[in-house]
Design a protein around this nucleic acid. Structure first.
Lengths: 241, 241
DNA sequence: GTCAATCTTATTGTTAACAATATTGCTGAC
DNA sequence: GTCAGCAATATTGTTAACAATAAGATTGAC
């Protein structure tokens, strides 16, 4: 008897050596977000098949998915590379994020249910622990989960999906701030505030905190972008792992 | 010499008998929006390969794309079918649409540039003509183009993308109102109002019109949904063309 | 007649070989 | 020495055959 990974949407990780397409997507997303694979790095199908022990059409599909996520660009017969956003694009992206996340925060019932508070507290605990341990991969995952759980509480599924989708696009940028311990500590502290505010009725402050919470990554990127001569960015090679 | 369809993103229709993957997606999207393929209709890969004269992996990819667009659901080893949304999902979707489209309308510079007015007028003309002629396929296409052009004017690319993405999800629903001549005429008239308002500075009315413009399709669907016993919807067969 | 086990069929998922394309480095003329 | 043309290579796109799965039909026992 052998457990198998079935389809894209119902995949559950079981076999570590033979992995589903979603796993590849998630792993690559993570590494892009962590800056292990930098902007303009090439992603070659053959390399992926070897690294993840999948067949080529799986790697191929993963790249297609990453493209629709906005993390990767592909050109016919020329392959895929990690996308890098221009300063203008970043600013636009953050404007939209602020808008939809703010609106979602307005929809969350206050005070929040005990169940939600409990869930967020658990995640927050793990997140803080990961930060303390310097385990960036876990930091990334727990942070993602925290936000997902938080915004799902708005009760509007498509809205939560849009929020997640936009956050994903921004992953490539976050790598500039995720390495900074000070920023990480600040994020942790703000998460604690989220939980505290959810138990009160001060919606104004909650919405304000949401806006405030997304700024640091943007600032870090824009700061950096102004010092680097963006267009002639030298191509980096993908040698993660 | 033979012109060829290259990659997904750069495809341009040239050969009608051998068509790119995007073409399949567009055609299917159109037919779903027009109600030619109803909710719960199955989409079999082999049928698509024959109809569009493509290889199976192209049809396959098209179905995957339609799934990420939210128009189709797929289950492993069981195939794809046109998605149907529950009443709750519709209401949530329209809430988000109103929110993002309203915000976009606030960002459009007023009065709009002559270039934009010109573009919209041309599209509007074709749209009205299509309505008059009863050419539903063109109605669909021109309507789409009108909205895309309108919202692109907000200047925020990711915002425009989100708007388009949400509109796409709703296509499956629109089919309930697109057949109605009265509704179609109303849409046309409102488009004319859009153009008129863009030339003035009355932002309040513009934003209000955007909200109002989305309502009819929602109403039509919700009306219908309440009369039909949703969950036990009988499966319909895909026999478009 | 009904139920369970089995077989058949429709359909999707997987595989590996092959073709097409773009890039790179090389050769030779000027 | 530089540039054009050409050959080699790396990489993606395509193809068709094969395997796996799920649903329905058939058979046989009770």
């Amino acid at each position: 008897m052998e457990l198998r990974v079935t389809g894209r949407k119902t995949a559950t990780r079981i076999v570590p050596t033979q992995v589903g397409g979603d796993e590849v997507v998630r792993a690559l997303e993570e590494e892009i977000a962590l800056g292990l694979i930098g902007p303009r790095a090439r992603l070659v199908e053959e390399e992926l098949t070897q690294r993840f022990a999948v067949k080529r059409h799986v790697a191929r599909q993963a790249l297609a998915d990453l493209e629709t996520m906005g993390l990767v660009v592909r050109q016919p017969y020329r392959g895929a590379m990690v996308r890098d956003y221009s300063v203008a694009e970043i600013e636009q992206l953050y404007l939209v994020r602020e808008m939809v996340e703010g609106r979602a925060a307005e929809l969350i019932p206050l005070p929040a249910s005990a169940a939600l508070i409990g869930q967020l507290s658990v995640i927050h605990g793990r997140h803080c622990a990961a930060v303390a341990a310097g385990d960036l991969r876990s930091v990334f995952r727990e942070n993602l989960l925290f936000h997902r759980t938080f915004f799902a509480a708005c009760g509007n599924v498509p809205l939560a999906e849009v929020i997640e989708h936009l956050a994903m696009k921004v992953h490539a940028i976050r790598s500039y701030s995720i390495g900074n311990p000070a920023t990480l500590a600040a994020v942790c502290k703000e998460h604690a505030e989220f939980i505290a505010l959810l138990q009160r009725r001060d919606r104004k402050r909650l919405v304000a905190l949401v806006s405030q919470h997304i700024q640091p990554a943007k600032e870090a990127y824009l700061m950096l972008a102004r010092h680097v001569n963006r267009p002639s960015h030298p191509p980096q090679v993908a040698t993660a792992q």
